[in-house]
Design a protein around this nucleic acid. Structure first.
Lengths: 120, 120
DNA sequence: GTATGATATCGAGGATTTACGATGAAATGC
DNA sequence: GCATTTCATCGTAAATCCTCGATATCATAC
């Protein structure tokens, strides 16, 4: 993969995080982790139709991207790093609507707020 | 890539969109498109250190994922499909904070709202 | 009709990812 | 000590991705 040198640090990081989330198994891991708050590797191996070594590698990818983290007292127990998800959401928001029209729900509201008009 | 059959449609789509965004060149295209509202292919070729055919393929990937769209009166002019970005943000929000504690800024506020506590 | 310009698609290479089984490491229980 | 359990890492094969040049398409201009 060629390096795009005009890229900001933020864009670079976004690409890395998006890439890590861009796999069905890893999305599943993330949603499972969100549901359960914290999981051992074995819990996730049970949920996924993949070999233990494969799940372990997916976890590594997610960890390197900063999406998951953690070990509770030395136990290999994973959980979501919500700061990264928030950062990603914020990135999307800023890219999509730099003027600040609003792109995502927050608090109680569930409906996405209307954003700047599309040019096409 | 093995198919994960427990996956919901939503998770499947999220993985596809994340995957499409998970490449530095494509992130650059998206941010450029957001800045300019609409671009011809040639504009993007100028910005990126890639061959025209390569840029065209990246555009195809983004288009297939529903991230970009459009042709103004037959001209091959692209622009962001903000609905997809909003959908993605909404997905992140729901995964991260199913209880609705808030994960993203909306409207004027720029600081991410505090989310449910991490388990790790 | 023919050239020009802009874009998409094809085909091929090299790199990366995904998946697996086998092996290593570290803690727990006998 | 030795077996067991749990997880990470290694090595490797197959699939996919990224990139390019070459070629096809499709307007517009002459």
């Amino acid at each position: 993969m060629k390096t795009i040198d005009g890229l900001t640090e933020e864009e670079e990081r976004a690409a890395t995080v998006f890439r890590a989330l861009g796999n069905p198994a890893r999305v599943r891991i993330v949603t499972e982790l969100a549901k359960r708050q914290a999981c051992y590797t074995g819990d996730l191996v049970e949920v996924l139709p993949l070999a233990q070594s494969t799940v372990s590698q997916h976890l590594k990818v997610l960890k390197e991207a900063g999406i998951i983290s953690g070990a509770i007292e030395g136990n290999p127990c994973y959980c979501l790093d919500e700061r990264t998800i928030r950062w990603l959401v914020d990135f999307c928001y800023r890219v999509c609507c730099p003027a600040g029209e609003g792109v995502a729900p927050a608090g109680g509201g569930r409906e996405p707020v209307e954003c700047g008009a599309s040019a096409c």
